[in-house]
Amino acid sequence: MQQLGQLQHSVELWRGLGSQVADLLELTSLAIETGDESVADELSVETAAAAASLAKAEMALTLSGPYDDRPAILTIHSGAGGTDSHDWVEMLTGMYAGWATTGSRPVQVLNTAYGDEAGLRTSTLEIGGLHAFGYLNAEVGVHRLVRISPFDPARRRQTSFARVEVLPSAVDDDPEVEVRADDLKMDFFRSSGPGGQNVQKVASAVRLTHIPTGIVVTCQTERSQHQNRDYAMRILRAKLLALREEERAQELSALRGDRVSAEWGNQIRSYVLHPYKSTDSSKPGW
Score class of each variant (00 low, 15 high):
V39Y: 01
K56S: 08
E139R: 09
A205H: 11
R256W: 11
T28P: 01
R156D: 03
Q250Y: 06
V140L: 06
T122S: 15
L61A: 02
R70E: 04
I268F: 01
Q250L: 06
G193N: 07
E222R: 11
M233H: 04
E165P: 00
R237V: 13
T34R: 14
R147I: 00
L4S: 12
D41H: 14
I76C: 09
D68G: 03
V216R: 06
L24G: 08
S85N: 12
M95V: 05
E37N: 14
L236Q: 07
Y271G: 00
N198L: 07
L17C: 09
A205N: 10
G115N: 10
S204F: 07
G214M: 06
A55M: 07
S64M: 05
F188I: 13
V39S: 07
S204Y: 06
Q20R: 14
L25F: 15
L184W: 03
R256Y: 09
E176G: 10
R259I: 07
T75F: 04
A205F: 13
L13N: 14
E247V: 06
L13P: 04
M91N: 10
L74E: 05
M95Y: 14
V171I: 09
Q200F: 01
E176R: 13
T122E: 14
K56A: 15
T101N: 06
G115K: 14
D69L: 05
D116Q: 08
L27G: 01
T159C: 08
V260W: 09
V39I: 14
P168K: 00
L273C: 02
H9W: 09
V206E: 05
E46Q: 15
R244E: 15
G18Y: 04
Y67T: 11
A55Y: 05
V199I: 14
V109N: 09
G195F: 10
A138W: 04
D258Q: 15
L43V: 01
D182Q: 11
D23P: 02
Q158T: 01
A162W: 08
D182A: 15
S19H: 13
E246M: 08
G195Q: 04
A40P: 03
L252K: 13
E176V: 03
V11W: 07
T34W: 06
D23Q: 13
I215Q: 05
L125H: 06
F188Q: 12
I268C: 01
D41V: 11
R244F: 04
A97F: 03
V272M: 00
K201Y: 08
L25G: 15
D182T: 14
A205Q: 12
D69I: 05
V164L: 11
L74D: 02
I268N: 01
L130Q: 13
D84G: 15
